[in-house]
Write a protein that binds this DNA or RNA. Structure first.
Length: 227
DNA sequence: GCGACAG
DNA sequence: ATCTTGTCGC
């Protein structure tokens, strides 16, 4: 799919923060999509001690959750990891990977936060906005916000709050494991976000989309089901 | 000034 | 994220 460049990427951390504040106003926090038959997972890994960013997108058919297609892109890393500015480090490579897809996915599950972010523009919101595709943030740990204890029952969740606003959900995807931090990215509400993440789970802590994307972005090459 | 801090 | 072996538990 072709992607329209909406802004530059060679920004200073200060400029990046200002841009986030502007883009956040455009994020749609309610369901805005029709039938979803293809769900994609996106993630990034690093090679050569961080000099190269390797992004991957894995497209799964829904509801079968069978891998339909995937794409990988490698780009020179040009932004440091700064809490709150993760998208400026990973999104360029992710866009390069998604650009290789013939058909755009109907829903994106991103590694990281959606609106559960200081300026309400985590990587899932930023990516969803740039592609104009519904997106959900699926993070393994917390960036901001407070919450109560999560019942140790698969599917149980409690609201994640910040400054008097509910910005996400802390979801137990499996008994006995650390919960996931789910937050709307773009064009989807909180309850739906939780429901879609649950719908992409099988027997593991992470949804299949995320597992595939992470594998493609970080697994050492040369590994194959050899006899 | 002192912690917290997605990947 | 990444550097890395064995080990505890279902």
């Amino acid at each position: 799919m072709r992607i329209r460049q909406r802004h530059r990427w060679d920004l200073t951390p200060k400029e990046a923060m200002a841009l986030q504040a502007r883009l956040a106003a455009e994020v749609v926090r309610r369901d805005d999509f029709a039938a979803i038959g293809r769900v994609a997972g996106v993630d990034a890994g690093f090679e050569e001690a961080g000099a190269t960013t390797r992004a991957a997108v894995a497209v799964l058919a829904f509801p079968s959750l069978q891998l339909e297609t995937s794409a990988i892109a490698r780009l020179p890393t040009r932004f440091p990891y700064v809490p709150g500015l993760l998208s400026f480090r990973e999104v360029p490579a992710v866009l390069a990977a998604i650009e290789q897809l013939a058909v755009p996915p109907d829903l994106l599950l991103c590694d990281g936060q959606g609106i559960a972010h200081p300026r309400r523009l985590g990587i899932a919101s930023h990516l969803g906005l740039l592609l104009d595709i519904p997106a959900i943030g699926v993070a393994k740990t917390r960036l901001i916000g407070t919450h109560d204890a999560v019942p140790d029952e698969r599917g149980a969740w409690v609201p994640l709050e910040d400054r008097g606003e509910v910005i996400g959900a802390v979801l137990r995807t499996r008994r006995g494991v650390k919960p996931l931090y789910i937050s709307p990215g773009h064009r989807i509400g909180l309850e739906s976000s939780v429901a879609w993440v649950m719908a992409c789970l099988t027997r593991f802590r992470l949804p299949e989309t995320t597992r595939w994307a992470h594998r493609l972005a970080s697994e050492k090459p040369g590994k194959t089901t050899a006899p």
